[in-house]
């Protein structure tokens, strides 16, 4: 999959005869981020920037920032942003969508934001089939606040609030919320991708692009869950965290398109993933 980015400055390079293969899109603001080394948020921000550039979206995008590590996303993506209270991004986006029919409406949330405090909001935005593209970053932890357990934390996983490992008896089971949402007829597209390696990142970009096109084409609610890593929160090196992502995390959260009701031959909804709590 060739990575390319249209760049207006390429013409000036004609004399150099070298050919630009990749340059970061302008909509990805040129500054160092606050994310920890190796954090998947950076990759996801970049993919969003590339897809939005490819689909010519920045000029009419109104995006909703979450509360969590990605609360500063408005410092990195050069589009109009509103900051939502923790968990409320889908409701904030609903308000935007309803009064600005022509806008491209995007939400970006972490797992605590979407699958814990914001569960009602994401469920009802999906149930209403709001024409919104939701990016849901699942790194199984509350990163910004120091590495606490999230609804998507794996069983047995140690966090600062499950110090001896997540115990289902006391702390319940990991939530596969995207599968839950996919049951709702209002959801036109639901998929789960990963930043685990170059191949996964390529496939993730296709999913994000699809989720944006669904909105452009007037479809209903679109969501892409992204399995992402949290080296610091997981207590691993960046590379180890990606191995972990490919391993037990991907096992608990199967990758792929869960439902795509937009395609003419509607892809059959994902086999109701046997929610095996002991994943």
């Amino acid at each position: 999959m060739t990575l390319h980015a249209r760049s207006s400055s390429v013409e000036t390079q004609r004399a150099a005869a070298a050919r630009l293969v990749y340059r970061k899109p302008d909509v990805l603001i040129d500054r160092a981020t606050h994310y920890c080394p190796g954090c998947g948020h950076g990759v996801i921000h970049r993919l969003l920037a590339e897809v939005m550039t490819d689909l010519d979206l920045p000029a009419h995008t109104i995006a909703v920032a979450p509360v969590g590590c990605a609360v500063f996303i408005y410092d990195y993506l050069d589009v109009d942003f509103v900051e939502a209270p923790h968990g409320r991004a889908p409701a904030v986006a609903t308000g935007i969508r309803r009064v600005r029919p022509e806008a491209f409406v995007l939400t970006y949330q972490g797992d605590g934001d979407l699958a814990a405090i914001g569960t009602a909001e994401i469920v009802h935005a999906a149930a209403r089939g709001e024409r919104i593209t939701a990016i849901f970053v699942n790194n199984g932890i509350y990163g910004m606040t120091g590495g606490q357990m999230a609804p998507t934390t794996l069983l047995g996983q140690r966090t600062t609030s499950s110090p001896s490992g997540r115990d289902a008896e006391l702390m319940g089971y990991p939530i596969r919320i995207t599968e839950m949402l996919a049951q709702l007829p209002g959801v036109t597209y639901a998929a789960r991708g990963s930043v685990a390696d170059a191949g996964s990142i390529g496939r993730l970009k296709v999913m994000i692009r699809r989720a944006c096109q669904v909105q452009i084409e007037g479809g209903g609610f679109a969501i892409v869950e992204v399995l992402s890593n949290c080296p610091v929160g997981w207590g691993m090196t960046p590379q180890e965290s990606l191995e972990h992502l490919k391993g037990s995390v991907a096992e608990a959260y199967p990758l792929g398109v869960i439902v795509d009701r937009s395609a003419p031959s509607t892809a059959r909804p994902a086999a109701a993933a046997a929610t095996n709590p002991e994943a």
Partner: peptide, 23 residues
Amino acid sequence: TSCALCARVCPDAVFTVWAAPRE
């Protein structure tokens, strides 16, 4: 080889990748 895989996995978008001039 200017394959740009580095740019694809980089969380901080630090790479700009050029292909060799034709000749």
